[in-house]
Each structure stands twice: as structure tokens, then as C-alpha cells.
Simulated assay, not measured.
Amino acid sequence: MKVTWTYDRGDHRDNHEVDVTEPAALETLLGEIHQAGEPVVITIFSDTTDDPDDLPPGLQVGLGHPTHAFAVHIAGTGGYLTDPTATTPQRGLHFDVGGVPTEYPAEHLRLRPETAIQIAATFVRSDGAPPHVPETSK
């Protein structure tokens, strides 16, 4: 699967793209991105679309904030995943999306970073099956 993310560097965009086939390699990569402490949206997908402005089916994960993250399944029946045991931040948080700082509402940020990483690894392991919050998180 392809994994992409971009940071806004003011005078330029810092684009990244890697191919990942092993869930453990993805967990390591996402852990490193998260530890950098720069909130960013990572897109994970296997298929491309004909329209470069359309998101391909896949998963987006927001990491880099110390305590809050998100995961959203990009598909016709997809949506944001939430862990009922995770606290909701008091306000929305900004994440870089394709190099554009974007605010995500608090209600979409109901995952812990380690849970979002686990969801992403399972998504790769299952070859793109619809993601879910692991039972161990609940």
C-alpha cells in the first residue's frame, strides 16, 4: 500500500510517499511520524483514482498530537472511528493535510495515537478491509 503525508514548511511543502507491505513496518513509520510531534494526516491506500483531486479508497490517520488522534475510512460506507473510552479534546485541533493546516472538530478526535497506529496496521494486514477500533482499546 502507498503511504503519503505532507508538511507545510511555510516556503514549501515537504512531501513524503512510501510503499508499505508489512504492518510492523507501518507501525514503526507511524510511530516515528507521531514522535516528531508535528500534527499531520497520513493517507494509506492501495488503489488510485483517475481524478487526481479525488481521494482513493483507503484510510487517513491524524497523528502528531501528544494525546489525540483520528482515523477515517475513506470509502462509500466509511467514516471516523471513535473509541468510547478516549477523551474528547475541548476544542478542535489542526493537522497538516497535503501541506494545508486544517482544523479537525473535537468529535472526530476520539482516538489515542497508539490506537490510531494499531488501526492503520490492521488495515494493511487485512489488505484494506473496513477498519474498526480494536477491542483492547475499549
Rank of each mutant, 00 (worst) to 15 (best):
N15K: 08
D47P: 06
A69E: 01
L93G: 01
T77N: 14
F95V: 05
P39S: 13
H16M: 07
T67R: 14
I42T: 15
H12S: 14
G31E: 02
I117F: 10
D14R: 11
L109K: 09
E103L: 08
G10V: 08
H34Q: 14
Y7L: 15
D51H: 12
E135I: 00
N15C: 03
V61P: 06
K138W: 04
Y80P: 05
E22P: 00
R125I: 07
P113M: 11
V100L: 09
H16C: 09
G10E: 04
Y80F: 15
E27D: 12
H34D: 14
A36Q: 14
E17F: 00
E135M: 11
N15E: 10
P66V: 04
G98E: 12
G78F: 12
R125W: 06
V18A: 08
P130D: 09
P52W: 01
D47N: 14
F70L: 15
D50Y: 10
G64C: 12
E103A: 05
Y7N: 09
A86P: 00
A36F: 00
L81S: 03
F123L: 09
N15T: 02
P105C: 01
G76M: 03
D19H: 08
I44H: 02
R112Y: 14
W5F: 15
T67S: 12
G78I: 11
A120G: 06
I42P: 06
G58N: 03
I44N: 07
E38H: 07
I117G: 03
H94R: 14
T6P: 00
P57L: 10
A121D: 10
K138P: 00
A86K: 02
P134N: 07
E107D: 12
G58H: 07
P57K: 11
E114V: 14
T49E: 12
Q118R: 15
T122L: 13
I117V: 12
H73Y: 15
V124L: 14
F70E: 04
H73E: 14
D96V: 00
D47I: 09
T28C: 01
D127C: 08
T28G: 05
A106H: 10
R112K: 13
L81Q: 03
I119C: 11
S137K: 07
T102M: 07
G58C: 12
K2V: 01
S46L: 11
V61F: 02
D96C: 10
T67F: 06
L81G: 05
I119G: 08
L81W: 08
H73P: 05
A71G: 05
Q60N: 10
E27A: 15
S126H: 03
I119V: 15
V41H: 00
G76P: 04
T88I: 14
G62D: 05
A24Y: 00
D83Y: 02
H68F: 15
L30M: 10
E27F: 00
R110H: 06
D47R: 15
R9W: 02
H34N: 13
R91N: 08
Y104M: 14
G99V: 11
V100R: 03
H108R: 11
F45V: 01
L26Q: 02
D50V: 03
T122H: 13
H34P: 12
G92I: 14
I44A: 09
A69F: 06
A106N: 06
L111W: 02
P56H: 06
A69I: 14
A120H: 07
I44K: 07
T77Y: 12
P66N: 04
A116K: 07
G98A: 04
P134C: 12
K2A: 08
T43M: 09
P56V: 05
G31C: 06
D53P: 00
V72D: 09
T102Q: 03
